[in-house]
Structures are given as C-alpha cells and as structure tokens.
Design a protein around this nucleic acid. Structure first.
Lengths: 213, 213
DNA sequence: ACAATGTATGTACGTTCGTTCATTTTGTGA
DNA sequence: TCACAAAATGAACGAACGTACATACATTGT
C-alpha cells in the first residue's frame, strides 16, 4: 500500500510522514512473519508486537483494528504477486511460448514462491468461506490470469495447428498445475525442487504444444 | 485349558458405550462444521458446543483438550480420504489407464471433494508450518499416493512405448493438477464444474498417453 | 522559540478463551 | 432393587485476547 499523499505526483514526505509509513510497512511485515511463525490463530496482537519491536498501541494507531491489519497483509501479498505475473505476461515482444515459460518461471521463482508467503496464502484461503472479505485478495490467479493463459494457449494452438487441442482445457490445466506446485512447495518445502517443478510444467507444455517446447 | 476370548475380540457395546462413541462422533462432525462455518479461529469451544447441542464439558471429557479434538478431526478427514483413493487405486483387475481415471474421478467426486472438507484441509494445511503435529494428517497425497501414480504412469509408458516420456514428471504433474483442482473448487465452488475439471485432467492424460485416453 | 499537531507508548479494561471440577443423571452388575 | 461407576452437565476460574485511552514524545508551521 502506498502512502496517500495530497499531491499524487509529488512525494513531499516530511520526516514525520516517512517515519509513519515506515512503521506501517514494518507492521505489515511483522504481521506476515507472525502468521508464518505462529499460524493464523497464533498471530495475536502480542505476537505481532513482539515481532515488530514496536509498541502495543501501534497496530490500532495504523490500522484501527487487528482485522484491518490482516486485510492489509492480504492486500499487500496480492499486489506483490499481481505485479510479478503481469510483468512476465505482458511483455508483448516475446512470442507466446516464451511468455508462458516466463509465467511458469515467475510462479516458481524464489521471489514469488517463498515459504512465508505461501503459508500466508493458505491462511487467508482457509478462512475465505467464513470471511468473504478475504476473497478479493486471496484470489491471486483471478480471471485476468486465467484469461491471459487462455489467450496464450489459443495463440499456440493456432500457430502450431494442433489437432484436437482446446485452449480452455489446456489453460485450466496450467492454472491448476501451478496451484498444485504451490501446494507441494508448502507441504514439502524441504524436498521441493524448483527445477523439477518447472520441468514438470514444461513437460505438460511440451505434451500440449510439442512444436513449441 | 481355557481360551481367552473375552477381551478384544468382540465389541459388545453397552448402551452406555454406544452412547459415548456416538457423542464422540457427533463432536467430530460438529467441530468440522464449526471450522467450515467460522474458520479455524472461529472454531471455539463455544462455537463447537453450540453446533453440537451438547454440553460444554463434553469436549474435554472426550478429547481432554480442544487441540486433541482438532487433531482427531484431521485424522478423521485423512482416513476418510485415504480409504477412498486406495479403494479406487488398488483394483488390480482394472487396466492402468482405468485406474488412473478412477483416481481422478474419486478425487473430484462429491464424496471426496466437498466444500466443508476442502475448507478443513486448507485450515490444517495453513498451520502446518507453525504446528508440525498436523503434518501427519494433512498430507493426504502422501508418498503412497504419488508412488501409485508413478507406477501407473510407468505402466502406461511401457504399454504405449511413448517416446520422451517420463513417469515421474508425468506423475508429479498429475498430483499437482489434482491439488490445483481442489484449490479451484475451494475458491470458486459456485462456478466449479466437476465435469470440466475431469475433462481437463483427461485432456492432460490424453496429451501424455494418446493411445490410452 | 513555542504553541499546535501528529505520532508513539504502555497501562488498564471488559470480553472471551480453554479448562477445571463439583454436581447431577444415567446405565450396569450383583 | 440397589449400590456403584461411568457419563454428562454447566457454573466458575485464571489466562489471554483486542481495544481504548491518558500520557509522553517528536515534528511542524508561525
């Protein structure tokens, strides 16, 4: 979350404002760490405060309520992921096959697929049925992501003139495949091998589009 | 000589014993419902008690602690899933391709893939990093599952003499694919279509093993 | 330099948490 | 039938929860 200044173009932050936004940022990280270390249930005000090293009242000063802080963590995570995959997917100079490869690589990169962040994804997703407010943030692979993959698959099918191919089915498979890799990483992060995961994804891509991969 | 048959062999349940185990079973379901309705954090003693209609002390009587009850819920869920997929996978009379199809179908069936159970899977998985005791139960697709899929894939590769095929990569893809379908179902249960999900899985299977699917 | 204003602190408060346990109810065996 | 034991109950407890708020500190504009 960016600091909302009066003037959108200029960032004339005084020492006071920079200090405040710095603490806000620090609280987001501390809350994320607390969720990772102690789980959703263990991420209490006391735990987050101890993690941050700041004072107890800080959370309510910056976020009013603890729930608002958690929502801000989810939003932060969502934005972080969104900027990464769109950066990889929207490089129109690359051919479709390379864009698909780039999306896969980003999804499995140490920048996106971290033990902490994936644990937090799971935490919010676990309560999405009981707390619908989380939905807007946890649905990282939203309609836009899926549609992008569909477009790429359709392009590849057209380029390769593959018979009996189906862009929607192929795209759904890819989305599920990537989700499943995240799950595997979350549950077996010690044995997880990013290279093998990528190989499996490319293996699927080659099966779908043998002339491209 | 006297045969010691009185103990352990038969379960002559009293009305008292049946009543107790009935309440235990009821508490497991009530706890599961509470997790589904209110999330892991909202599944308090009070919530579970209200859900069950039983008295407050019941939980501690049957499970000592609330955490034990949660562990029992995880164990119950794990066993339920395990019996289902093994039943589908171990029918040796079926050819390998049909066994793979059966596993896919079970995984996506209304018996296994329910909104409540998947939400509970996510709940326990979300805290597996902070509470290692959960690991033994939440790893539904354990080594046995993966190895079974690998075996099936290897059999199919041998049967079809597919070139450039790799059983491990194919199996990892299938496991991730099924996990991803669960995630999709969890996040978009309203729009989720079991038939389309199965079609996507079969689409992958056909891409891997065109002579079999 | 100095009010004014925004930021930071930590104690205090009411609520809710999980657990305990004295009591009541129910089923069992003699 | 009756003494006994197991099962079930719910009020009571200390601990931990999130929040409110009086206070202290730091930065700003004049």
């Amino acid at each position: 979350m960016q600091v909302a200044n009066d003037e959108q173009s200029e960032k004339v932050q005084n020492a006071r404002e920079t200090g405040k936004s710095k603490n806000r940022r620090h609280l987001l990280d501390s809350a994320a760490n607390a969720i990772f270390k102690f789980g959703f249930r263990g991420a209490t005000i006391a735990a987050i405060q101890q993690e941050s090293g700041l004072s107890r009242g800080m959370i309510n000063l910056h976020f009013e309520t603890k729930e608002n802080l958690l929502l801000a963590v989810a939003e932060d995570l969502s934005q972080h992921y969104h900027t990464r995959w769109t950066r990889a997917a929207n490089d129109k100079s690359l051919p479709a096959a390379e864009r698909l490869r780039a999306i896969i690589q980003v999804d499995l990169s140490p920048e996106v697929l971290t033990a902490r962040d994936v644990a937090i994804w799971f935490a919010f997703r676990s309560e999405v049925t009981s707390n619908p407010e989380y939905r807007q943030f946890i649905d990282s692979r939203d309609a836009g992501f899926r549609e992008t993959i569909i477009d790429i698959c359709q392009t590849l099918i057209d380029e390769g003139a593959y018979e009996n191919a189906n862009a929607v089915l192929a795209a759904n498979s890819f989305v599920a495949l990537l989700e499943g890799m995240w799950t595997d990483f979350h549950l077996h992060s010690a044995e997880f091998d990013r290279q093998k995961a990528e190989s499996a994804c490319i293996y699927v891509a080659r099966s779908f589009f043998p002339d491209h991969f």
